[in-house]
């Protein structure tokens, strides 16, 4: 969800997108089979690519998922001593079919979750979310924090850059490599936090002086697209999900060990 994201695809309400995302993520997690997860992932990738969102979502998901997969492979691929079907062994390392299957199951399931969530974030505008939260009478503070974090992020990085430049202009020579960068971060942290706190103080005055945080009801200038059809689809989706979960897990859901 970025300040300059486009409007929801096809004028969809963010809640419709959210309910779709929840349904997909929850069902794949419940089914918990690497084959199903892989199929859903493929389907999602095709959908997103057709939609034009794929160019943004898939690389972002890859940045998160590649280290995660490597970590899983390292943990379960090499050391899974519960595994019985041994494929290859060397010293403490034991590659088992069960280990690889476990890693694949977890990795693909998480990938579906990540792609679905990112697709949601990339197709929702923060201002729309604020308007929705207002409409459903959530505390305006929640909308403020969500929205404001996303809008001030570029400003914060801009200020960090200006501080670094001012320090260099006064003779700070930053070293190369990770050590030098860490030292530079440490040098910038104090002035950056001071400047941000100071600015936040002015912002608080400005918000308060414009009546933010009052006790009365709040309204919204922004209108978020919605339709009765979408409302029905949302309710149907949530109801279907509940029925599915009930059937899938059966009555023994809450008893420890009684789950599949």
């Amino acid at each position: 969800m970025l300040p300059d994201s486009p409007a929801g695809p096809g004028g969809l309400n963010p809640l419709t997108l959210l309910s779709a995302a929840v349904v997909i993520a929850v069902t794949t997690t419940a089914i918990n089979s690497w084959a199903v997860s892989a199929a859903v992932l493929l389907l999602l990738a095709t959908l997103l690519a057709l939609n034009g969102l794929g160019r943004k979502v898939l690389p972002a998901a890859a940045v998160i998922m590649v280290p995660f997969w490597l970590s899983l492979l390292l943990t379960h691929g090499l050391f899974f001593h519960e595994g019985r079907t041994i494929l290859w062994t060397a010293g403490p390392v034991r590659v088992t079919a069960e280990g690889l299957q476990f890693a694949a199951g977890m990795g693909l399931r998480t990938a579906v979750f990540v792609v679905v969530c990112l697709a949601f974030s990339f197709s929702v505008r923060p201002a729309d979310l604020m308007a929705l939260l207002t409409k459903y009478r959530f505390p305006p503070q929640l909308g403020f924090v969500l929205c404001s974090t996303l809008t001030i992020a570029p400003a914060v990085s801009g200020r960090a850059r200006r501080i670094a430049q001012a320090q260099q202009s006064r003779g700070l020579v930053t070293g190369q490599g990770a050590g030098g960068r860490l030292r530079a971060v440490q040098q910038q942290a104090v002035p950056l936090v001071m400047a941000l706190l100071h600015e936040a103080g002015s912002r608080a005055d400005s918000l308060e002086a414009r009546g933010f945080g009052g006790r009365g009801p709040r309204t919204s200038y922004r209108e978020v697209p919605d339709s009765p059809a979408q409302r029905i689809i949302r309710w149907l989706a949530v109801a279907a999900l509940a029925v599915f979960l009930m059937l899938w897990f059966g009555p023994g859901w809450f008893t420890p060990g009684g789950v599949r």
Partner: peptide, 26 residues
């Protein structure tokens, strides 16, 4: 820049900010 509400996507919404907080009808 420190006075921006940071929740408005357009100038119109920023101008409307105080009106929204006052609960003015749309």
């Amino acid at each position: 820049s420190a006075q921006l509400s940071t929740v408005a996507a357009t100038v119109a919404e920023e101008i409307a900010f105080a009106l929204e907080n006052a609960g003015m009808e749309h």
